Simulated assay, not measured.
Amino acid sequence: MGGMDIEIHPARPEEYPAVARLRWQWEVETGAAPVGDREDFAKEFAAWARAHTESHRCVVVCRNGTVIGMAWLAVVARVPTPGRFVRASGDLQSVYLVPEERSGGLGSRLIAAVLEEARALGLPKVTVQSTTRAIPVYCRNGFAASPKVLQAEL
């Protein structure tokens, strides 16, 4: 795992290509065959991330200056109610750590950083869609199943 110089922070624009490469690596790891060229994807992804900074906030974990993990907070506007015109909720998306960094607590620290960002934005709740393997990690970090959240597979 290397040195202990760990930093968790909101992704900077110059880190977006590295984040894109993590997204590509994740697809390869799960058995998908990404379409196109990895570096072209990194450029397009970085442009997408810059264009969506209000709705999709990325937090990264770096070891010795190298991006080794990411998590995204999607801020979803909600329909206004009387007395509360501005409403939003959060959705935790694309949480990923390179395989050699897993099981050391960095995933939990990354999730905590995203939840802190959600609190700072005043979001009342954050949802997450999880793989079966990752459910215990989310449960240890404050997530719980809700009988009120339903999903339709389309």
Results as ranks from 00 to 15, higher is better:
V79P: 00
G105N: 10
H52P: 03
R109S: 04
Q25Y: 05
P136E: 10
E117P: 00
R87K: 11
P13K: 14
A51R: 12
A11W: 12
H9L: 14
C58P: 00
G107Y: 11
V149Y: 07
Q151M: 14
C139P: 00
Q151G: 09
M4H: 13
L121Q: 02
S94Y: 07
V59S: 00
V149P: 07
I68C: 05
M1F: 04
V137F: 09
C139K: 14
P99L: 10
R50M: 07
A46F: 04
S130T: 06
G36C: 08
E117M: 14
V19G: 11
G3N: 11
G122P: 04
A20W: 08
Y96G: 12
P99N: 13
L123Y: 08
G83P: 12
D5G: 02
T132P: 11
V75H: 00
R87W: 01
E100K: 09
L97I: 04
G2Y: 05
A145W: 08
V114Y: 00
T30V: 15
E27C: 00
E29R: 11
E101D: 09
Q25A: 15
G107T: 06
R38G: 10
V76S: 07
A77W: 00
A145C: 02
V114I: 07
G36L: 13
A18G: 10
E54W: 01
